[in-house]
Design a protein around this nucleic acid. Structure first.
Length: 584
RNA sequence: GCACCCUUGGCCCAGCUGGAUAAGGCGUCUGACUACGAAUUAGGAGAUCGGGAGUUCGAAUCUCUCAGGGUGCGCCA
């Protein structure tokens, strides 16, 4: 995808520099794109607001970068956006003219037109698949990372103007289901609870595993295996008591997923169930086997990808049934053909790296043109301090446990003071919004290729760099802004304090940060940005009084600035799937 | 054995599409509230960016190599 040059300041300065280069030499013409990309931020405020590094021109001009910076300085035209320019060694730095810049940026943000235009020039229609939980298992904080990441990426893609289809692919078939039902029918003595049956079911799955593990090597091992095979056959043939039980219990798991999605405010444009692609995926493989693309080896069917250094990809077991890759091929076919998409993104943890390489390569060999536009967006796992989480072993932190503890903690530590003052339901709403802020920010703020070691006590601490810190700034601004009646005309040029211009410059970079997130499929740059913005506001707030500013006009201008910060925060948090409460 | 990912102050983490003095958070030490909402803020101490080599005018950033940690590699999903 290709982005427009949407940063007004950078575009303006790039044009200015281009003119200066043309004026100073005939030998060299840099295009606007190149100059635009060479602009950066100086390390210190007193060195200017934007820097142009001249190193790249040195070779072509046969002059030192420092000399070039000086020469360019002399050739610079006037610009209303630039107060002054100065060379610092090899850098040509610009000081923004607040009289002009403040108004351009804040007008756009306050009218919200800043967020409305598409940032991309070319945008392939994209499907993003995320959240592939298994039924009959409990959702844990590892699934939460996937959901938060996937949802934020979808939001970011849509924000920049890419037509995006969000889809999910839950696993409702397989041996894990058989194990769970086996235990339920034969050994469970408890009555299913009336609420959260899905979580209870997940615990049965763990018990089933422990029992099977326990009886390994005993006289029961063979019997257990035979029983599981029989259950799988019933599920496959779609009849029998286990099939009925499967239908019932699958609903419980679905309810669990829907509760969590509803809490996290996540929706999908389509749901693909694994059971749904099961039989057609086998047919698909057989079709291509007959065409001669796949080979039979030791009774099983697969594709030899060793020429591509991807080993052998097994597609049909010797009993004729499919595997994970089998279903992913059929699912990909449906996405390409049913949804008419050009690009396909899979948000799945990095253990599946080889799997997706094999699937994408196989799709290519099957003749799908868009196979080259498939992308595995991988992320590292969420682990516990004593190692990996495993539903099989039962050492997991369930999502609902995290949510419950977080909500409770927020009510006790922060919202208790409003009891009697606010409606109970209002406290409840805000507690959930703040909990979501903490959890979603926590899940998206770390680079996706770093693992997260989950420690409940650490997560419940809400100070420092956190979602609630940013939400708090928003709430505080909301309270501030509501105290002032706004004039129709604001004198933005009055905002000349260092902390004010710093804030405005940061605000202007919002879309550039988003561009960075989308090009790299990352969420953490947006998190860092919002935190830095919130922090910069707090510094401003501590130093510059808004309500007690010296003049009426300055009160107005600062209020408008604060409002602009709140608007950026609100929009930025919403891309992370986080609400910004008006009070908290 | 092969492949991929990670390694930055006591702990966590940003910077990695090469550039100016490596940015934050937690913890720690010292200050600021009868408040424009302290879920806040001002400041101090704390880093040979895992080791080594190379490319470059310039490397936390790119290449190679070594070490440590993690993950994956045909009948689970």
């Amino acid at each position: 995808m290709k982005f427009k040059k949407h940063n007004i300041l950078y575009l303006n300065l790039a044009q200015l520099i281009q003119e200066a280069i043309q004026k100073s030499t005939d030998d060299l013409a840099l295009n606007l794109d190149q100059i635009y990309l060479l602009l950066s931020t100086p390390p210190k405020k007193d060195m200017g607001d934007v820097a142009f590094a001249c190193f790249g021109l040195a070779k072509a001009l046969k002059k030192s970068p420092a000399q070039i910076a000086q020469d360019l300085l002399e050739c610079l035209n006037e610009s209303r956006l630039v107060l002054k320019s100065k060379n610092f060694g090899p850098y040509l730095n610009f000081y923004i003219n607040p009289a002009e810049f403040n108004k351009i940026i804040l007008d756009e943000i306050l009218s919200e037109s800043f967020f409305k235009s598409s940032l991309v020039e070319i945008a392939p229609k994209t499907t993003i698949e995320y959240s592939q939980p298994n039924t009959h298992k409990e959702l844990h904080v590892g699934h939460m990372r996937n959901m938060c990441l996937g949802n934020a990426i979808v939001n970011l893609y849509r924000y920049v103007g890419i037509e995006t289809h969000a889809t999910t692919f839950p696993g409702d078939v397989g041996t894990h289901v058989a194990k769970c039902l086996w235990y339920y029918k034969k050994y469970n003595t408890e009555q299913p609870p009336t609420i959260r049956q899905g979580a209870w079911l997940g615990k049965l799955y763990t018990k089933a595993n422990l029992k099977l593990e326990d009886e390994k090597g005993s006289e029961n091992e063979e019997k257990n295996r035979a029983e599981l095979t029989a259950i799988l056959k019933q599920l496959h043939d779609e009849n029998g008591e286990y099939y009925t039980l499967w239908q019932e219990t699958k609903k419980w798991s679905l309810t669990l997923m829907q509760e969590v999605y509803a809490w996290a405010n996540i929706t999908f444009d389509s749901w693909y169930w694994e059971s749904d692609v099961d039989s057609t995926s086998v047919a698909l493989i057989n079709k291509y086997f007959e065409k001669g693309l796949f080979i039979k080896d030791q009774g099983a069917i697969g594709i030899d990808l060793s020429d591509d250094k991807l080993g052998f990809c097994l597609l049909l077991k010797s009993d004729g049934t499919g595997l994970y890759a089998t279903k992913d091929l059929e699912l990909a076919r449906r996405k390409f053909e049913d949804q008419d998409i050009e690009k396909s993104i899979y948000v799945v943890d990095n253990r599946q790296s080889l799997h997706f390489k094999q699937v994408f390569k196989t799709l290519e060999k099957m003749g799908f043109e868009n196979a080259k536009n498939c992308f595995h967006l991988q992320y590292e796992m969420v682990e516990l301090p004593d190692g990996a989480m495993s539903s099989r072993k039962g050492n997991i932190v369930p999502i609902q446990k995290l949510i419950d503890e977080m909500v409770t903690k927020i009510k006790i530590d922060y919202l208790n003071k409003y009891v009697g003052d606010w409606h109970t339901c209002e406290i409840d709403t805000v507690a959930n919004q703040v909990a979501a802020g903490a959890i979603k920010y926590g899940m998206t703020r770390i680079d996706s290729n770093k693992k997260i070691v989950f420690d409940m006590d650490e997560w419940l601490k809400l100070d420092g760099e956190s979602g609630p810190y940013i939400q708090y700034v928003h709430a505080r601004i909301n309270s501030l802004v509501s105290k002032i009646k706004r004039d129709p005309e604001i004198q933005f040029e009055l905002l000349t304090h260092e902390l004010e211009s710093d804030l405005i410059l940061k605000l202007s970079k919002f879309n550039t940060i988003i561009e960075n997130c989308v090009t790299n499929n990352k969420t953490h740059p947006l998190c860092s940005y919002l935190y830095e913005l919130a922090k910069a506001f707090n510094s401003f707030y501590a130093e510059c009084s808004v309500l007690k500013a010296e003049t009426h006009e300055l009160v107005q201008a600062r209020t408008a600035l604060a409002d602009g910060v709140a608007i950026i925060i609100r929009n930025g948090l919403s891309l992370l799937g986080i609400d910004a409460p008006k009070k908290m």
